[in-house]
Design a binder for these strands. Structure first.
Length: 259
DNA sequence: ATGACAATCAGAGATTGA
């Protein structure tokens, strides 16, 4: 089973590029972030016509996450638990009913800039809630994953110019520590489990020719429970599509599971 | 040191992103 995560930076703006990529990459399951659309306006036919089941958790203008799946989806949950006041659409999870049931969680972790400030506080608080949900997944002792735009540069090797990100919410020591507290509960980060090479990124800014200079950062990640990590075949980044027509500033990260 | 670039909503330019 091929599962991908992709921050598309707006479904309207990606109405051509996203189907093109689906037709080429043929993922079974896709976790989308930043659909920037309310549920009613999401062009689900684009995906249903290609054989995908579609579940969305959108909001107006910003954020918004979705799951596309060629397998049936069960027990869909929207919103990260832990704060009933939180209106931002950054979390959706469901069980993918393939040969083996897999719980998939799609997330769009807050950016957090500027540091310090209320947005950074929200990021850290959100990560604390994420940790709680992560513990819950581990307790199930079943194949499960949390994937999406973490807005975290895990280590300096995950940025072309680490010095430029030192004071940024994506790389601050407190951000990295919060990410590691989740990882250290017992998750496997799929990309580094299969690839130790530097210069692998999942985001390039639109500005200043970042793509052409390969001035990127790796911030889109797959975290797998032990039972899911047992199934991991490989993980790769579809970087080339960043150079295609009207791209997102992120590219898809894909895993192949023995399931 | 700053802005560059893109998307959204709205119908100009502010806001957000990373």
């Amino acid at each position: 089973m091929k599962i991908a995560t992709f921050n598309i930076n707006g479904i309207k703006a990606r109405a051509a590029a996203l189907p093109d990529w689906l037709d080429t990459a043929k993922p079974d399951v896709v976790l989308l972030q930043e659909i920037k659309s309310v549920d009613e306006n999401f062009p689900r036919e684009l995906f249903e016509d290609r054989g995908y089941n579609v579940e969305t958790h959108g909001q107006k203008s910003f954020n918004g996450v979705a799951i596309l799946s060629k397998f049936p989806l069960e027990d869909v949950q929207r919103g990260l638990p832990g704060d009933p006041e939180d209106e931002q659409a950054r979390w959706i999870e469901a069980t993918v009913m393939g040969d083996r049931a897999i719980r998939v969680c799609g997330l769009y972790l807050p950016n957090g800039n500027p540091v310090p400030g209320p947005k950074y506080d929200y990021k850290l608080a959100w990560m604390e809630r994420l940790k709680t949900r992560a513990k819950g997944l581990l307790l199930q002792e079943e194949p499960a994953l949390m994937a999406g735009d973490y807005n975290i540069i895990p280590q300096d090797e995950d940025a072309a110019r680490p010095d430029a990100w030192q004071e940024d919410a994506l790389a601050r020591p407190e951000s990295r520590a919060a990410y590691r507290r989740i990882l250290n509960l017992g998750f496997t980060e799929a990309f580094r489990a299969r690839n130790q090479a530097p210069d692998n990124y999942s985001f390039w800014d639109y500005q200043a020719g970042a793509w052409q200079r390969n001035d990127g950062i790796r911030i889109d990640h797959f975290l797998l429970t032990p039972q899911c990590a047992d199934l991991l075949q490989n993980c790769h980044i579809d970087a080339q599509i960043r150079g295609y027509e009207k791209p997102s500033d992120h590219v898809p990260v894909c895993i192949e599971l023995n399931a």
